[in-house]
Design a protein around this nucleic acid. Sequence first.
RNA 1: GGAGAGAUAUCGAAGUGGUCAUAACGGGGCUGACUCGAAAUCAGUUUGCGCUCACGCGCACGGGGGUUCGAAUCCCCCUCUCUCCGCCA
Length: 425
Amino acid sequence: MIDIKYIKENPDEVIARLAKKGKDAREDIENILRLDGERRALIAETEAMKAEQNKTNKLIPQYKKEGKDVSELFVRMKEISNTTKENDAKLKAIDTEFKSWMLGLPNLPDEDLLAGGKENNQPLRYYGEARTFDFEPKNHVDLCTNLGLIDYERGTKLSGSGFWIYRGMGARLEWALLNYFIDTHIGDGYELVLVPHMLGYECGLTAGQFPKFQDEVYWLETAEDERRRFMLPTAETALVSLHRDEILTEADLPRKYISYTPCFRREAGSYRADERGMVRGHQFNKVEMVQYTLPEQSDAAFEELVGKAEALVRGLGFHFRTVKLAAEDCSASMARTYDIEINIPSMNGYKEVSSVSNARDYQARRGMMRVRRADGRIEYMHTLNGSGLATSRVLPALVEQNQNADGSINVPEVLQKYIGTDIIK
RNA sequence: GGAGAGAUAUCGAAGUGGUCAUAACGGGGCUGACUCGAAAUCAGUUUGCGCUCACGCGCACGGGGGUUCGAAUCCCCCUCUCUCCGCCA
């Protein structure tokens, strides 16, 4: 959520900045300002009456004790009671509408972001060189199938399209990647957290995925009187709710977490012909990094997370580039996002393997995540997240880039200790 | 799955319709006194949210609704925790 005070004081600026994200917020802001005014007026009126009510309530036992008649007071009190009840109902309706507009507003993009979508993304830096082949390289689907690493057919048999099965050396390669990521993060002082894979609604709301993107996750069928739960689309959704409704102390921050989870996504309508194989599925494995920081720490934390994701990719020997996303390409909750993209030869281009974002106080406001400063002030923390990394893009890139003419695959050095070999054939 | 008990501030916990939410009482934290310093002792202090330029005012006793002039307290629904029994990897 964006600070209502900031919206009130700078409505035009907010509209202009959200426009960079491709959001025409004129109607939203108009409604928010109107409802906020109505809300305040009603609060002022109702609270004055409640003050009278409270004062009189103290008189009643006193009068009774003194044997005075209280029936006149009762008449007035009934009046107040009726009006405040009506007002409270009105206020609730206004509040609900107000909140729904507020929750619908995306985060403000940072000032330095370019407006517009993907076409305005800026590559910031490149690392290494794209591999060239002196033979006709195979795509990862053929490579993985031939080597028995991935069983696409049986994945579909078990669960339908968009699911695959890692087998044998494929499963070990996948597991080796995850181990490499996790060990690196632990070495960097991050706390490993294993979270539930089914989450309650509030988690999605805090992360900023709900109410707008409720259709993009898998909901579990529940009985009428049972709490609704969904399969997490990313560990961020869980980790960012870890400190929901908490007030941490300044010394507690920054908090640095990582989590491994499978991620479940509907990906409705997003299938594209060039995204064959395991680039986009309904379930994929990911190690996620999340930081909670003091507001003034979040810029440095962002650079740290980007650096960590880059280091993992570099460690695997990949050529990659780091791209600063234009405002519209950042997700709704985020003020800024950098993607790390590697080359998947069969796809003629760069594909995202990590996305690092700074939400600033947007998620903290939604989930009431605050910090008590040394001087006693309470303010919202900042939250950041980044993939570190998702294997579903890394493994295809790895097999394609490390393939030999005979169809075998060289195992990057950092993975060899986990998998026990330097070549898969 | 069955039966029962419970949820009050940083923690334990009292309060069962008004004059104890300025939330008793106890512990912890912080500040000060005493001390070379510490412990002990003594004194003080210590919830969050909203509205307001401010003085202040309002709200919150797990969450939601109801009864009442008035609810921590009575009624209904939900969530969570604990105990016992059953079942179970």
